[in-house]
């Protein structure tokens, strides 16, 4: 079956299988920031935005995104032109192996789009379903709070 979707600001018309996951579709389309950790909704490595809300791409069926807006990390920034959230993660030392980082950033993006002055507790609640096996989370929380500060100072897009 074919579906329309808006992927990172671009209209796409894509062939999908009825039982395919959004994770599978996005990786087929080259969005390699979307990682498969568990494929059961538990780890958060595949988190993307669906109409501005963070969801697990592994638990969404690809046909469910028909006519909807999907944003992956590739839609926020890249190596040449990183998004302030990506820069904050580097600045705060919040990236080690990097496997959880795209999911963490997408969750943080949704949080900051609703609340640009979150408390550390609110940041912890937002990332509570995203697992990181390397950092111990402290620097991830620091990075999101730093990005929030930059957002309040107008360093954002």
């Amino acid at each position: 079956m074919k579906i329309y979707l808006e992927l990172n600001g671009k209209q796409r018309y894509e062939e999908v299988a009825p039982g395919e996951s959004l994770l599978s579709l996005l990786r087929r389309l080259g969005m390699k920031s979307v990682k498969q950790g568990c494929a059961t909704g538990d780890c958060g490595a595949c988190t993307v935005l669906l109409d501005g809300r963070a969801v697990r791409a592994c638990t969404v069926f690809a046909p469910q995104v028909r006519g909807r807006r999907v944003t992956t990390l590739e839609g926020l920034g890249d190596v040449d032109d990183p998004h302030p959230l990506q820069e904050a993660f580097v600045e705060a030392g919040a990236v080690q192996c990097g496997f959880c980082t795209p999911g963490m950033i997408m969750v943080a993006y949704e949080l900051l789009s609703r609340n640009d002055n979150p408390t550390p507790e609110e940041v912890r609640e937002a990332i509570s379903g995203n697992l990181c096996r390397c950092t111990g989370y402290v620097k991830i929380v620091d990075a999101i709070l730093l990005a929030a500060k930059w957002k309040r100072e107008g360093k954002w897009r």
């Binding site: 009825p18 039982g19 996951s21 494929a39 592994c58």
Partner: peptide, 13 residues
């Protein structure tokens, strides 16, 4: 690495 759903039999949506 399996990146499709576990529901293998789905034919129609």
């Amino acid at each position: 690495v399996v990146i499709n759903m576990r529901l293998k039999g789905i034919r129609r949506f």
